[in-house]
Amino acid sequence: MIIPSFTHKMAAHCESGTITSLLNHAGLEISEPLVFGISSGIFFGYFHKMKSFTFPTFIVRNKPGQMRKNIEKRLGIRFSTYEFEDAAKGMAMLDHLLGQNIPTACQVDFFYMDYVPSWERVHINVHFMIVAGKEGNKYLISDVYFPQMVQLEAASLEKGRFAGGSMSPHGFLFHPNTIPPSIDYESAIKKGIKKACFNMLQIPIPFLGIKGMRLFAKRIVEWPKFARDTEHLSHEIMKINILLEDQGTGGAGFRFMYATFLQQAAEIIHQPQLKELSKQLMIIGDGWREISLFSARIGKNRDLGPDKLRKLSELIHDRADVEENFFRNLSKAIN
């Protein structure tokens, strides 16, 4: 049976979409871009070498789990959260919550979600989706990346919830508990923007924020030495497109969704300057999209010589310059 009155909705990103869907179900009308912006979701980080990645990579959002925590802090919403060492107890708690008609968000390893097409499946422990019912041995899943609700075998869900490795989910579950009768959106929006500007401009870590973007631009020309062969390099270069466009960003590495947030925020807090900045960010996003398309093209054509990687490096450097300027202006506008 499916939890009554639960409505499945697609969204751009799994964490912001899951939070939005649960809050909407609990009676709070809030959009995904507002959730994303208030929780300071926009970010950049470059990882040249890390134990858990086989190849250099980058991220375009804040730390997984942080969106929920920031929404809780800034909107005054309380979420109930659960973690388990014992898988049987973790599955029993999920059934218990479903029995109380509570749609519940789960953190899982994406790889074990059988409803995901083979080409999309990767081991990543930070996928979020909502369990909204159970029929026999199958759970009804509202995964914001899919147009309709899907079914998942209990064994696969358990495997995904209790996968080991970095950022292991430990069966993590959450759902909204209390929502305050009135919310100070102005304060929440300003805090969200300030923190995003801090993360992009001032965080004192050389591979994060704008500094991370410049490091990415500098180091991408070294990628061939990490690759097994040309096909491997082609795959990793084409993954730039996937990370910016396909892996739940709403396009251009979340820049389009953040622009939407700024447009909505401008109306809520009556600050027209944010509307102007949202237009600028849309254009900046188009530049990221150019990087995505360029990466896909050179990857497909195996045209991965030093000149093409230098060109890619220049395009990323250019984004770092325009985004530094953008976030400085955004910071001034909000202070």
Partner: peptide, 30 residues
Amino acid sequence: QQMILYVEKEDGKYGPMQTGSYISANFMDD
């Protein structure tokens, strides 16, 4: 492979649009 993309609508407002994956549509064979 469907996804949500945030775009500029005809009235100038930004919002979500359901569309297909560009990379899967064009480069799946590769």
